[in-house]
Lab assay of single mutants.
Amino acid sequence: KELVLVLYDYQEKSPRELTVKKGDILTLLNSTNKDWWKIEVNGRQGFVPAAYLKKL
Score class of each variant (00 low, 15 high):
K1P: 15
K1W: 12
K1F: 15
E2N: 13
E2V: 11
E2R: 09
V4Q: 00
L5C: 07
L5K: 06
L5Y: 11
V6M: 02
V6R: 00
L7F: 03
L7T: 05
L7P: 00
L7V: 08
L7K: 05
Y8H: 15
D9E: 04
Q11L: 12
Q11T: 15
E12T: 10
E12D: 07
K13T: 14
S14K: 07
S14Y: 07
P15V: 11
P15S: 12
P15R: 10
P15K: 10
P15E: 14
R16T: 12
R16K: 13
E17L: 05
L18F: 08
L18S: 05
L18V: 15
L18E: 03
L18R: 05
T19M: 06
T19Y: 05
T19F: 05
V20C: 06
V20N: 00
K21D: 04
K22R: 13
K22F: 05
K22G: 07
G23T: 01
D24F: 06
I25F: 06
I25A: 02
I25H: 04
L26F: 11
L26Y: 14
L26M: 06
T27E: 12
T27P: 14
T27D: 07
T27S: 09
T27F: 12
L28W: 01
L28C: 08
L29C: 07
N30W: 08
N30C: 10
N30K: 07
S31W: 10
S31E: 15
S31H: 12
T32I: 08
N33F: 07
N33I: 05
K34A: 13
K34E: 13
W36S: 04
W36R: 04
W36E: 06
W37M: 03
W37S: 02
W37V: 02
K38L: 15
K38C: 11
I39C: 13
I39W: 00
I39L: 15
E40V: 08
E40C: 11
E40G: 09
V41H: 15
V41Y: 14
V41N: 13
N42P: 09
N42K: 09
G43R: 05
G43W: 04
Q45D: 11
Q45V: 13
Q45E: 12
G46R: 02
G46L: 06
G46M: 09
G46Q: 02
G46C: 05
F47C: 11
F47D: 04
F47M: 10
F47Q: 03
V48M: 05
P49C: 03
P49S: 02
P49K: 04
P49M: 03
A50Q: 06
A50T: 07
A50E: 04
A50V: 07
A51Y: 11
A51H: 12
A51L: 14
A51R: 15
A51T: 11
L53H: 00
L53Y: 00
L53R: 00
L53N: 00
K54S: 12
K55S: 09
K55G: 04
K55N: 08
L56R: 03
L56K: 03
